[in-house]
Amino acid sequence: MTLLDIQNLRPCIFTRALNLSLANGESIGLGGSSGSGKSLLLRAIADMDLHEGDVLLDGVSRSAFSAPEWRRKVGLLPPESRWWRDSAGEHLRMPTAAPLDELGLNPSILEQPVTELSSGERQRLALARLIANNRPRVLLLDEPTANLDSLNSRRIEELVAAYRHATGAGVIWVSHDPDQLRRVSNRQYRIEAGELHSVGEAVQ
């Protein structure tokens, strides 16, 4: 059953509108060179920039949701995490609900000043924050493991897969690493010069 239905979506630099649908529990891998528009596509789906087109969640148009409501259901994880309180714990609605163990993090990390954490720790905490606070129906992951070693990359891959299987959430995963995309996705696409191409099949 279709979870997310992207209809005639055209982020500003794209030459043509694109259509894409994501089934319950499905994961789509998205590759493409830097500057090709992968991040812009995710931002358009999360309704962060001006763009044309519509996105439907469970058959309901985005315009039926308020913007905050939509972004809680369709959660975008940007490549660089941002923090605005002193400790990571202050950003969590229910600190105990955060999947810290699965990400190889000690609960005491929530009390430490964010500025003292490594970029990899912050990145993992940002995913924990997104999942624990909002339980999104769709995860839009923009290079979630860019700052991580292979062990911690695997932890993120496993956590996302477990979340997907447990809740039926859908995932769009942007990465530069073809091996990772093979591991984490059911289908793969590439974005080249503002156009979406299916990988291993004919051009869409």
Binding site: M48, P68, E69, R72, L76, P78, R82, N133
Partner: peptide, 20 residues
């Protein structure tokens, strides 16, 4: 701007995101 947008992405309203 990145902090504001990060807060919007987490589902905060514009009012909360720009409050500080």
């Amino acid at each position: 701007r990145e902090v504001i947008e990060a807060r919007l992405m987490l589902g905060e309203s514009w009012n909360e995101a720009v409050g500080d």
